[in-house]
């Protein structure tokens, strides 16, 4: 491994963190997975710069990040289009670009989506803590010293020069996800859907919810129809594990989609977003609208298989185009 300083943060914007595909195996100690909220975007961006899909990248929230290349490096941006530009000249998402020493990369403001994922050829080499480079913001560990990126932070990568040849690789347009402002998320009922009367379950499906400004990496807070539990039931249940995408309904009847910073909870969960739609949760922003579409397990599994097939074909394509020397 040849560790090379590749990037310096000139302006971190409102929130930029180092994330990989998450921290698994420590839920027994109360440690949540963290990780890129839009794993599709990080995985694809990594492939486009010749990295392993699980390599750490930067999760950029809404706007503002400005970084300078400290050496020749290849980068790719997946996820939301936050209007990235190199030295002021707009660049595309889902495509890799070479940067020369001294070049600036800047994210202006969201055209669509909520979070962009920057992959750097050779990865972002922060220390792996409990098996992952992801930042756990609430407990301040992992990532870049447990905190969001700050001005003057310097990021390193492994042998970035060996990735420069991936400049120009792109995700075929037909595989790129589309991000609007009206979302339809596929869900499986449960685990506690039966604690809600039929009227509540209908209300849950019928009308769109609005995404509240209080949403963050811990959860997407929704407002709209109040979802009432059966009147005989208390507000809380005996605490149990929770997984990303599960939709809990606290006493006020306003659902919250749990993201990756929580591992246990004591509210009833009416439904859970299917695995194939989890990446979209990273792109939903305050003011957007969300509807839920119930599917069955076969449909959910079919969607995951299709997603993995896309990645298999992308990997094949990139390795045919850019053979390893």
């Amino acid at each position: 491994m040849a560790i090379v300083a590749t990037m310096e943060v000139m302006d971190p914007g409102p929130l930029c963190t180092v994330q990989d595909l998450g921290r698994y195996g420590f839920g027994r100690y109360g440690v949540p997975p963290s990780g890129a909220l839009d794993s599709f975007a990080l995985r694809a961006a990594n492939i486009l710069v010749g990295n392993r899909e699980c390599e750490a990248g930067l999760e950029i929230t809404l706007m503002g990040l400005k970084i300078k290349a400290l050496t020749g490096v290849v980068v790719a941006i997946g996820g939301g289009d936050l209007q990235p530009a190199i030295n002021g000249k707009s660049i595309e998402t889902w495509r890799s670009y070479g940067m020369r020493k001294g070049d600036f990369l800047h994210f202006k403001s969201p055209k669509n989506g909520c979070r962009a994922y920057l992959a750097v050829g050779g990865g972002i080499l922060v220390q792996s803590v409990l098996g992952s480079r992801s930042t756990n913001l609430s407990s301040r560990f992992g990532g870049y010293e447990g905190t969001p990126l700050k001005k003057k932070d310097v990021l390193s990568s492994d042998s970035p020069e060996t990735h420069v040849k991936f400049d120009g690789s792109a995700l075929p347009p037909e595989w790129r996800p589309l991000y609007g402002k009206d979302w339809v998320l596929r869900v499986l009922w449960g685990p506690q859907d039966m604690d809600f009367p039929e009227k509540s379950r209908e209300a849950f499906l019928d009308s769109p919810f609005k995404v509240s400004p209080q949403s963050d990496r811990t959860g997407i807070r929704l407002s709209g129809h109040l979802i009432h539990r059966r009147p005989s039931l208390g507000e809380s249940i005996i605490s149990e594990g929770v997984a990303p995408g599960t939709i809990q309904v606290p006493g006020d009847g306003q659902p919250i989609i749990i993201l990756s910073e929580t591992i246990t909870g004591g509210y009833r969960k009416i439904a859970t977003v299917i695995g194939a739609d989890l990446p979209f949760l990273g792109q939903i922003k305050p003011g957007d609208q969300v509807r839920f579409d119930p599917v069955d397990l076969d449909c959910a599994l079919g969607a995951i298989e299709q997603l993995e097939e896309t990645f298999r074909r992308l990997r094949e394509r990139i390795s045919a185009e850019f053979p390893m020397t």
Partner: peptide, 22 residues
């Protein structure tokens, strides 16, 4: 199996559905 989260009266198992069938 990716994750085991034991709680008061339940155990949550997080798994990869492409690696093991339900």
């Amino acid at each position: 199996i990716k994750e085991l989260v034991p709680a008061y009266r339940s155990l949550m198992i997080v798994y990869d559905p492409l690696a093991i069938l339900l």
